[in-house]
Design a protein around this nucleic acid. Structure first.
Lengths: 210, 210
DNA sequence: GAGTGCTCCTGAACAGCGTTCATTGAATAT
DNA sequence: ATATTCAATGAACGCTGTTCAGGAGCACTC
């Protein structure tokens, strides 16, 4: 049975390793995340990392999970907007903004093979909560009567996410081919989507067209 | 100046190397594409590969370029549909279908850092031609008067591509979280998009609603 | 206080990775 | 028949993730 100060030191070591790992990913990209590099930065030998983590993937997974919590925090802040349409735009901006500030984290979470499968499909609550924020905006949209009838709310939320992720990931890998900034790309796409799903606004006038 | 049979044998070797490399990616994934594995499969030593290719990235790039030509071929076939809306749906199905058959190739082209940047931004004509097929469908849509006025054709094509790539790449990395097949995901998203950008159809009847 | 565990950590090692280089062997050119 | 060119190799270097025997140092017990 380990004593209190012992476990505390061990937890400190764990935290320091993760901290250095996060810094390396942020500064030098995900592929620079090397066991020996992490160890040196944290003041350990490479073998010591295996006393605190199962392997490199476990470290990466932990980074991804805390990254997902960061995304969730950004989306939560944006979801405070009351007007549902405004909320959607705020969510979109927050999503894109997160990916812009931490592109390597976004890549780790959503574009690295193997991670998202286990994180989102598994017990990761942050991911599910983040998606619920998106879905909630559409629910609010429906409750406010702003949606055309007969639309699947879950499908709309998925479409929204597809739009967000498509914009971000395409910009991330094909930035040379995509000249407009991601905010503009997404604004255009979102306009078309909203135009297709929102009920025609009551203008107060009677049928101005047709 | 090398003799004719010499250059022929050398070209054969190059082709055989690429062939084996492609097989390895298809069967065992992109990360299994190892110089030593390719060499063994092609009957060479690892060092011999460097007589035919600059490095591993050059082999991957070549695979990506021929993969892009495959995608272009699939899209070209789909673009034969005359009705612009049908063409859009056919293009979407062809895009998703390509990614389903060759997910590792798709990942190599559009999700691997470094490749798409050089391929699409550089002199790769297949990529540009593929995008032109998407843009052409919207041009046809505009020429047929099926689009609501005041919409940027290039922006619509980009939105369409974002939708396609978002669907495919999300399904590729988060398949555990996304239960519906990519065709359904895309159909929902495409319906919303079309609903937003298409001009209201003249039904022959007069204002059936409102 | 001496001895005994237990925990944390290290250096060395293994297999595999991409890549380079001196050397060989065979086919071509003279 | 000799000289030249060129494809191909084996060994090596530095890197990667990971494992393991061994060694310190702390916390207990007697």
């Amino acid at each position: 049975m380990p004593s209190a100060p012992r476990t505390r030191r061990k937890e400190d070591a764990r935290a320091r390793i993760l901290e250095e790992a996060r810094r390396i990913v942020l500064e030098n990209g995900f592929e620079a995340l090397t066991m020996r590099r992490i160890a040196e930065a944290a003041g350990y030998s490479a073998a010591a990392l295996y006393l605190h983590f199962e392997n490199r993937d476990a470290i990466a997974r932990e980074l991804g999970e805390s990254g997902m919590q960061g995304l969730l925090a950004a989306l939560t802040e944006a979801a405070a907007a009351e007007d549902p349409v405004e909320r959607l735009r705020a969510l979109a901006l927050a999503y894109v903004g997160f990916a812009r500030i931490e592109p390597e984290t976004y890549r780790l979470i959503f574009m690295e093979p193997g991670f998202a499968a286990s994180a989102l499909g598994g017990k990761d609550e942050a991911g599910a909560a983040a998606f619920q924020l998106l879905a909630g905006a559409f629910e609010a949209l429906g409750n406010a009567g702003r949606l055309r009838p007969g639309q699947d709310l879950g499908g709309l939320a998925l479409t929204f996410w597809i739009l967000l992720h498509g914009t971000v990931s395409l910009k991330l890998t094909c930035s040379a081919f995509l000249s407009p900034p991601e905010e503009d790309l997404l604004a255009t796409a979102l306009d078309s989507l909203l135009n297709g799903i929102l009920a025609p606004e009551p203008t107060g006038l009677n049928l101005p067209e047709r």
